[in-house]
Structure formats: C-alpha cells, structure tokens
Amino acid sequence: MTQSDFVPFGTFNLLSEGVVSYQSPSNIALVKYWGKHGEQLPQNTSLSFTLSNCFTKTRLSFKQKSDTSNKVRFKVLLDDKEEPSFVPKIKKFFNRIEKYLPFINNYDFRIETSNSFPHSSGIASSASGMSALAACLMEMEKILRPEISKEYLINKTSFLARLGSGSACRSLEGPLVVWGKHPDVEGSSDLFGVSYQGEVHKNFKNYQDTVLLVDKGEKQVSSTIGHNLMHDHAYAQARFRQANTNLSKLLSVLKSGDQDAFIKIIESEALTLHAMMMTSHPYFILMKPNTLEIINDLWNYRDQTGSKVCFTLDAGANVHVLYPENEIKDIHNFIDQKLSKYCQNGHYINDNVGSGAKKL
C-alpha cells in the first residue's frame, strides 16, 4: 500500500452523532527505532512486543457541527478532567490526518481517555493513547464506509497512529509487530506496522515483561527532540545499519529458540539506544543510578542461576525485565526481594505480551 491509498474518494453519508470506544496497549521495542525522516517515517526497521496490561482506554464522542466551521474542534479529558497539556499534540495529529479522514472537519469531538497505569508513572502513554484514538477514528470511517476491508482497516489505523506517535503504529496488533521496510519481512512498510507472521519458537511464546518504575517523573528529553538529535549524529548511519542487521539476526533467533542469542541482541539494542543519546549533541544520560543497580543485579542473578531473564530500556530510566513464562514464579520472587528496592516507592508493573487493540 502507498500513502495515496489511504486518501478516500467520494462522499460520506455523515452521522449526526455517536460514540466509539477502543482499548489499545503500549509496546516495548526489542530492536529500537531511533531517528526519523519525513513525516514520522523511521530511519531503521524496529520490532516490538505488544504488551497487555499497560493500556489506554479512549471514548470518542462526535456530534455534527451546527455551523460552517471547517476546523476540527475537540475537548480532551484524562480521568474525567480536562487535560490542556494534551491539546497541542492532538491538534497536530488532527492536522496531519485531515486529508486521510476528511469527514472529521464536520464534527465536534469529545475525547475521554484513561490509562491502566498512572499517567505520571514514567511509562510512555503516547503509543497506547494515539493508537487508541486512531482506532476510534477508523471505527468512524468503517461506519461511514462499511465496504472497507479488514486489511485496509488495520493498515490505515496503524498508518494514522504513526502520524500521532511513531511507536503507536506498533500497538494495534501482536504479539510481535514490525515497523519499517525490511527485506526479511514480507509486507513490511515504513508507513505502518505489520504483525510478524514468521515462525516463532515456543521459547518466545507468552513472554513476560515486568516494568520497574525507577523514575516516575516526566522524560528528561522528549522523544521528538531525541529523534531529531540523530540528524547530525556522528554514528547515525552505522546505528541504522546495525539495527537492520540485528533485526535479521533476531528473526533467526525467534525461529530457532536460542534464548542466549536473544538476550545478547535485546540487551545490546537497549544499551546502544542510550549510547546514542550519550554521544549526541547536546548529550543526555537518561539512566539513573538505580537503573545501573538493577542491570548489575540482574546480570549477577542470571550468572548464578542460569535464568533466561534479560532487560531492555526505553529512552528513560525505567527497566523492562523480560523473561519466559516458565520463570514467572522465580523472577517475581527475585524482583520482589531484590529489585523492587530500586523502584520509586517500590512500584513495578507485571505485564505480558498481548494481541493489540480491541473495540470496547
């Protein structure tokens, strides 16, 4: 599919008013996307686990305008309270998607959203939030154009979500999603995420992810600024090549079931992401002392027990602890007894891979 395929033609039979609701999860990248070009397009391919328990619920109410204004109007609420800080991002999103959903200018919207995790927890809510909103808007298009296919619906939803937040395009399906054109993944695209359909060994089924909340504050640097730092980065091109090579290696590992090779790729990807931030101009250190304490304790535990637990990181201080389903009891004990002390107020979230967004 090309970008022009998502521009509808003809007229819509508009509804006077209605409500649609969706729930969409966050995701955690295994191979990281860092650096973009054009309008929210990735510089390298990424692969992620879709999560299950960390999600956003969005209720979108729409009512046809009584005036001739051709500007999108909306009100946004978080946990039943107006949230002005969300307005600029959503306004930019509506501006970007107007040509793909031209009917939105005919409505006033009320966006009511809530997260299954505290908004200030340090877990990025943009992926779950923007994917849930995109899913609601595409449900509107489906009502107005019932002839659209299931494939078109999911691809366009991911395409729109990407225009709100790059990683949001990976939250709509699961358990593994690829975003970015890659020769080893049939149907992959820079325009939207696709569910990975290749062979996955039983070792990597029903994977677990416990999010250790080291720092619940706002990000030290926004994702937009972080991605922009890659434009003139001395190591950018080498990093993009490395990520695409790592994705090829990881697909082979997922097929073979080699958990040790999985660990090496996943942890290397996490540390490389932070290395790119530490070597950019301006430079940032996003890890906290407790992040490093967790990593070292986890490495020691793995050496002593032979566990297949590993870690990954987003662009922040929190640690995602990844482990196979058959280690749940042992890892939960390890986290509770050893790692929770490094978390702010001892808080962490137990999660697992999921299947993506769902209509409510």
Rank of each mutant, 00 (worst) to 15 (best):
M1S: 14
Q3T: 14
V7R: 13
T11F: 12
Q23Y: 04
Q23N: 12
S24M: 07
N27L: 09
A29W: 04
G38Y: 07
P42D: 04
Q43P: 00
N44G: 09
N44R: 05
T50M: 05
T50E: 00
F55M: 05
F55D: 00
R59C: 12
V72M: 10
L78I: 08
D79P: 04
P84I: 04
S85Q: 12
F86E: 01
K92L: 13
F93W: 13
E98Y: 04
L101K: 02
D108G: 09
I111K: 01
S114V: 04
S125I: 07
A127M: 05
S128G: 10
G129V: 10
A132K: 04
A134N: 12
A134Y: 08
A135M: 14
L137Q: 08
M138K: 06
I154P: 03
G166F: 02
S171E: 05
E173D: 12
K181M: 11
V185I: 11
E186A: 15
G187C: 03
S195V: 11
Y196E: 00
Q197G: 12
V200G: 02
V200C: 04
N203W: 07
N206P: 00
N206H: 15
Y207E: 08
Y207F: 15
T210L: 08
V211N: 02
V214N: 01
Q220T: 15
S222A: 02
T224M: 10
H227T: 10
N228L: 09
A236Q: 10
A236H: 06
F240D: 04
T245F: 14
S256G: 10
G257A: 11
Q259F: 10
I263W: 01
S268L: 14
L273K: 09
H274Y: 03
S280R: 02
Y283D: 10
M287Q: 10
I295K: 01
L298P: 06
W299T: 12
R302V: 05
G306K: 09
S307T: 08
S307W: 08
V309S: 14
F311R: 04
D314C: 04
D314A: 05
A317Y: 00
N318V: 01
N318E: 07
V319C: 07
L322V: 03
F334E: 06
S340R: 06
S340Y: 03
Y342V: 01
N345C: 06
I349E: 06
I349L: 15
N350G: 02
G356F: 05
